[in-house]
Design a binder for these strands. Structure first.
Lengths: 195, 195
DNA sequence: CAAATGACAAAATATCAATATTGTCCTTTG
DNA sequence: CAAAGGACAATATTGATATTTTGTCATTTG
């Protein structure tokens, strides 16, 4: 029944993302996704071992293109001070998460659900983000903008210390009026520690 | 049908806590609690406006006696350095939360559920804990152990920056092997900022 | 023969009537 | 008359059953 040429992994992810946005993670079945592709659901299982792995793959791709990639542009930009870049980077991460939780709520719900399973893939994504922070810090240490230290350890500390502002488990708290002031205060604490 | 003398608010909370520990927050009904008290459930409603407010009251009392009160002993002890006391206090908070999540799991589940409703009561409890940190910090600033600053703001930052280790939304992550190393790293970051 | 299908079993989820729970309030009791 | 009881309506939960969904695989198709 499949008209279009070879069914690719990417095409399945596209369809899955589309159905997911329409119905949400709870109401999306593999059959729904196959229907969009005009393919039997058995065919989808030729590309993904399980529904869980499909959900993971969708989330992984979304995290990469919506979070990691845009942040990479900030981390990789060597102009300006490291402090400025670090703050910009953190604010971008936080803004992305908080705005997706409101404006791309089904994909965000998918991501939050996958995060609860504490899957390898999430750890890898987090490591990737921490590595971006570490790069900024390393540069700040090289230019003596920051106190000397271990960039990786410090980067991980900063990521963890700001969890409240970017971890999906805290999404409800992002609506509080004090959220911006709280981030400023935590940022100042971090700054005292690194400069 | 009530034999014992006047039914007090505290007696209801005792019974509620007992039933809650036995059946867990999901399977505990007001009728179950009334049965333990040998009273009709209507009587319970003379003391609490709703089941939700009863759950809140149970959680509030538990948080106070299991968390805030023991920590008060640390915050109030004026011997030793403020740094030591602050670290001891944070470790005690974290240890209490993490150990209750395993060993008093039904009450912890109750607390986690109430926290999701982001109720006034939780905010008050948090303010109370932050005030304890602020007292330690104020003392550290007075003795020039810490850089000068606003104790309340700093205390709030430290509480938030350590959320990962004591907020119930992160309970699953407390099982990770890196959890202690992660706290040490965050503690070092905080220390750099305050000393 | 690689890719897809569709029939199938097992597991999960939806449905809906029966049952239980919540919350109110008028009555009873000490 | 203050405190508790218990009948009651509205809401939520349970449990038995029908339906859907997941995941497999022997067969079909291009």
């Amino acid at each position: 029944m499949n008209n279009d040429l070879p069914l690719t992994r990417e095409a399945i992810l596209d369809a899955a993302e589309q159905v997911l946005r329409r119905f949400g993670p709870d109401k999306t079945s593999v059959v729904d996704i196959a229907k969009v592709l005009r393919v039997s659901h058995g065919t989808v299982y030729r590309h993904f071992a399980s529904k869980a792995s499909l959900r993971e793959a969708v989330t992984e791709r979304w995290l990469h293109k919506s979070i990691a990639e845009p942040l990479e542009a900030i981390a990789g930009n060597v102009n300006g001070s490291a402090v400025e870049r670090l703050k910009l980077w953190l604010e971008a991460l936080i803004h992305a998460k908080q705005s997706f939780s409101l404006q791309d709520s089904e994909m965000f719900a998918m991501y939050a659900a996958v995060t609860l399973d504490t899957i390898e893939m999430i750890a890898t994504h987090v490591d990737c983000l921490i590595e971006q922070i570490a790069r900024i810090i390393r540069q700040g240490m090289d230019s003596a903008e920051f106190k000397p230290g271990q960039p990786e350890v410090l980067a991980r500390s900063i990521f963890i210390a700001t969890s409240r502002f970017h971890h999906p488990a805290h999404a409800r708290e992002w609506l509080a009026e004090t959220i911006d002031a709280d981030f400023d205060a935590v940022w100042n604490l971090i700054l005292l520690g690194i400069e």
